[in-house]
Nucleic acid binder design. Structure first.
Lengths: 363, 363
DNA sequence: CTGAAAGCGCTTACAG
DNA sequence: CTGAAAGCGCTTACAG
């Protein structure tokens, strides 16, 4: 079960890096100095339009890609991004990591993954960040909404990025989606299918998106002239367990809902479990919808109708923004500090018209 | 919602890298040349014992850590590890990524995350790997057990590492746990609590650990002189959905089990859902146990008694092995190609003595 | 607006 | 067993 033999075959490269083109190659092709190539690749300042064109053409032709290791060495601009997280929903986290770490890897930036207790003292945290020599901070939810933390980080002079916040800070980068609009679309779909008693399970109030999603739900009802029923809105905290309790309350109502919209997939999965426990058929007796489209949405049965949030892409863009900030090199085509990405309504098997409706009244 | 202002404050480093010690500092302190320091840090060959001691002391005193970017540049030994995955259980994947990417980041190695269809043609895959200039391959389950793939990769001369395989290849690195022993422990716990009708949901036969875990189950029964009942062993494929069907069959038995051991957490969660649908109390009427201790184990209710598999650490070690192989620098303290890590039985709330037992017969 | 020089921290041949 | 030199690919002052 153990030996010390080496790999059978191995293809070693020569000392020079394969034959990837270098600045020198580009400089030769464009008939300029190394310096000028470097300027075009970086700030792009103090270069005549004509020269820039020549250099860019050479770069494109040779397929030149800067060697990040060399840049780091020469420039001393090491990027060390702390990824702070708490309450890791693993499905969320894995998508997040794929995006963030992928981008970091390509740019030879380091990501330092740091677990951050709910009640961490910001001072302690800043100390830790210093120990890791972090020079930027990535804040996924719910930390993206922690005002105290944001303030403290800002005071420490660290560039930071909020992902999926409902309240972007003026002092931070932010990548968001339209949480209200997406929820509104989802609820409207249900209404169009004939539902009018639509229950809602809200999210953790410590995340600003919770408010936005609920506002979307309320707006869709209002637009359809459906009077809101307070007993159909119950609070959850994004956890499966809270979804269990919330769904029980909803179904215990004297006039129970024909559809439940949960503000994330975990709680929707819980609602599904409760429905089954009550002997209800989904979607025949009850429609159930979620939000996020994490892996859980297709793990359970029936598969969840939900909103696809591009978590990985959000993380990727936030990471790119921080890298650009630390390196002081603008990201091509992006000069906004706050970016909003599109999301999509994914129709799967957990929704349908209510039983007492044969035909949808409008569709 | 968009502006171009820059971060308010920012702490830039001077051109030289903070004041991290360099080889030159170590050389000065140890009164040797740079060359000698480099030799000690790397192969450690051709250095007198006395000199080595001096250098090592200097390294320890200064807290010297090699600058990977510089090493890569000078040595041209870029490590590019392809992480091939299929059927991503996101809970598994996120833990895996944390371990693997963390290790890669520290060592300035690149991880290229590549989704790999079940029926991918190995030739196509090898082509893709070449395009990415990958020089090592990480194989989490189920790909770690794909013989064709392993053969093809070996022929391509790429060092590879299997994670959580039941059948380590002589041509690969491997990091495993004792799947059979762990399952045996779990089943023995149930037997000690008084269970004798213990159902089992097996895993996907395309993973070699499925066999091992089932063997552990059978061994525990045999050791306790409990005759195996074929109707209590049903096959699953590690998916939630397969767990749903398997649990239904188990509970439909004329003499249903008082406990169900599922060979992973997803299927255990499904068994729990089915139990609830049947109006059974867990663990009062039925004990349910899983395997892996992914996030799902504590997401659901009651929390799952399961085996904690150190996925992140397994991924970390496998990654370290590949990096060492590509750099031809042995990992300190590890010269085995196959490593087996410990795992742990985590007792939570989903198991207990069967209802007809007041006191455990042996505990 | 453009470039020649020095240097980032390390390793690889090459000598002794 | 040990070391002086050259160079990896890039950027930063410094001159023009």
């Amino acid at each position: 079960m153990s030996s010390t033999e080496k790999s059978p075959t191995r293809g070693r490269k020569s000392r020079t890096n394969a034959n990837r083109p270098t600045v020198a190659d580009v400089a030769r092709a464009a008939e300029v100095s190394l310096m000028t190539v470097s300027r075009v690749v970086n700030h792009g300042t103090n270069v005549s339009e004509e020269t820039r064109k020549k250099v860019e053409a050479a770069i494109a032709e040779l397929g030149y890609v800067p060697n990040q290791a060399a840049r780091n060495l020469a420039g001393g601009r090491e990027v060390r991004i702390a990824l702070l997280y708490s309450n890791p929903s693993s499905a969320y986290l894995s998508e997040f990591l794929m995006g963030s770490l992928g981008e970091a890897s390509v740019n030879a930036a380091q990501i330092i993954v740091e677990y951050c207790e709910e009640g961490v003292r910001p001072a302690d945290l800043v100390g830790k960040l210093a120990a890791h020599r972090a020079n930027a901070v990535l804040l996924p939810p719910p930390l993206c909404d922690d005002e105290r933390l944001l303030k403290r980080l800002q005071k420490a002079g660290l560039p930071m990025a909020q992902i999926a916040t409902g309240r972007p800070s003026r002092h931070a980068y932010a990548v968001t989606i339209d949480d209200a609009g997406a929820t509104e679309d989802l609820v409207r779909l249900l209404i169009e299918q004939g539902h009018s008693r639509i229950g809602y399970i809200s999210g953790n109030p410590n995340q600003t998106v919770s408010e936005l999603r609920q506002a979307g739900y309320e707006k869709a009802l209002a637009d359809a002239d459906i009077a809101p029923r307070p007993d159909l809105i119950v609070s959850g905290d994004f956890s499966y367990r809270s979804g269990l309790q919330a769904a029980e309350r909803l179904l215990a109502s004297t006039e129970p809902p024909t559809a439940i919209v949960a503000s994330n997939d975990d709680m929707a999965a819980a609602a599904l479990a409760v429905a089954h426990r009550h002997g209800l058929d989904v979607p025949g007796d009850l429609s159930v919808c979620g939000f996020d489209d994490t892996a859980m949405a297709t793990t359970i049965w029936p598969e969840l109708t939900t909103i696809r949030q591009p978590i990985s892409e959000m993380a990727r863009q936030a990471t790119a923004m921080l890298i650009a900030d630390v390196r002081e090199s603008p990201v091509a085509g992006v000069d906004a500090r706050h970016v909003r990405l599109d999301c999509e309504l994914v129709r799967r098997a957990s929704h349908g018209p209510p039983r007492d409706m044969t035909v949808s009244p409008r569709a």
